[in-house]
Amino acid sequence: MASLQQAVLDLKNLDLLANGNSPIHRLDARAKVLVSFVFIICVVSCDRYEVAALFPFCVFPVVMISLSDLPPLFIIRKIALICPFVLAVGILNPVFDREILMQLGPLGISGGWMSFASILIRSTLTVGTACILVGVTGFTAVCQALERLGVPQIFAVQLLFLYRYIFVLTEESDRASRSRALRSCGKSGKGIRSFGSLTGHLLLRTWQRAERIHIAMLSRGFRGEFRSPKTSRFGTPDLVFVLGWTVYFAIIRSFDIPRSIGALLTGGGL
């Protein structure tokens, strides 16, 4: 996580995007959480050699991005950052799976390449959807939706607290590590000893902060239970949104539409 600063900045940006006012933004967070989840399940459940059949799923992110005015480049950049882990594991597929599965003229494409392509498309779709979900909903609203969908309150609250203090603490640790870097003249001083006490100090300060927050909570009548002042309604548009997309996903998941179109065009049989 060398670029954690950048990531925290992205976090703020993503959160600001969620302040937008579009038909998608206005939907109940629960509807968006549910649809995203159905989407991901449908995508990952496709066969491992499936490439073309995944394409109709692109309609969902594209429509979401267009309707909600999210900057597509921002999302694409986030997707491009996804862990090299997928690539590292996926790239070995063509090595191990050399069975020719498809003939494109003189070019034989092996099952390994097909599944590799499939893996890449899947991760683009699933990671992109997670990004879009946060971008059109906001992390806070996602957490509150989760709570109302049955996640234990203490866990939902934990997520909110964590998110809130990421900003405070990363700034603090940024200051601390910068001051160490300034005094360590390059290499020396960056060893485990100074690391231990620096991080330890940060930890103790964090601990004290938690105690202060607790006092602040008690001072305002906290007795162990969070009561939310907000009540959003799950209305007709939300229902239409959930049902519409679920039906669409079900259809493209069970009928291979690209294949039918392709067969129609190329004149080949199904």
């Binding site: 957490c143 607290f161 998110y163 809130r164 305002r220 009548g221």
Partner: peptide, 22 residues
């Protein structure tokens, strides 16, 4: 330190925290 006092996700919810607890 207001960062210790403002722990809820939005200003509204933070200001509402006390009254809700009442």
């Amino acid at each position: 330190d207001p960062d210790d006092q403002l722990f809820m996700p939005t200003v509204f919810e933070d200001v509402a925290f006390g009254p809700c607890n009442l």
